[in-house]
Nucleic acid binder design. Structure first.
Length: 195
DNA sequence: GGCCAGGACACCA
DNA sequence: TGGTGTCATGGC
């Protein structure tokens, strides 16, 4: 196999798959909700949960903060882990109304929310706040291993790998991550050390 | 009917 | 700090 650079792989995927135009959401807040609901969960199940929130007029931070936890659990049940995620959505919604894209140390603000780890935080920062953080998920690690780009244990090492090799561009980061996910869905490739 | 999906955290040694 | 268990639904 010919070993390629990250930007070359990006160009090839963009040519083959076309622009993905991520994140699939109608608003930045919906991005945040989706980022939490999709934790270790098939996106199709997330779509059902978000549809329930929309149908009941509950897709807003105010509505989610105010509603009973059990009611929220019922709406998001299709996304799995619904008890945990209901709690996480409430905590994240509280954070949502208190920060802006100009809040200092915004990444750590999100990481301080129980239930929001590095991947979820970076998804929110990139797709909801338009800030240049490259998102590392299970597909990204698989992508790196498959193309012999790199292999690390730590999330930060992967993020640094991409951010140090790509132009610092929010649209590029968005599209690249989306293309990696599309690649992952088309190529069900797993390795022994796969997360 | 088993396996897996766009993680995160608690607990233990 | 590293390994393991838990959380849960729905599609294939």
């Amino acid at each position: 196999m010919i070993r390629m650079k990250p930007l070359t792989l990006y160009d090839r995927m963009l040519a083959e798959y076309g622009p993905q135009r991520w994140w699939p959401a109608d608003s930045p807040y919906e991005v945040m909700v989706g980022a939490i609901l999709t934790q270790n969960t098939n996106w199709r199940n997330v779509e059902k949960a978000i549809a329930n929130l929309k149908a009941t007029g509950c897709l807003s931070p105010e509505a989610i903060m105010e509603m009973k936890k059990t009611g929220l659990e019922t709406l998001i049940r299709p996304s799995g882990f619904y008890r945990q995620k209901a709690e996480r959505l409430k905590l994240a919604s509280e954070k949502w109304v208190e920060v802006t894209s100009n809040t200092p140390d915004l990444r750590n603000e999100w990481l301080s929310v129980k239930g929001i780890g590095e991947e979820t935080a970076d998804s929110i920062l990139l797709y909801a706040f338009d800030l240049p953080y490259f998102v590392i998920d299970a597909y990204t690690r698989r992508f790196c291993a498959h193309h012999r780009l790199c292999r690390f244990d730590d999330y930060e090492d992967y993020r640094c790998y991409f951010e140090s090799r790509l132009p610092r561009s929010v649209p590029l980061y968005k599209e690249y991550h989306a293309l990696i996910v599309e690649w992952g869905k088309r190529n069900k490739i797993r390795s022994p050390r796969d997360p």
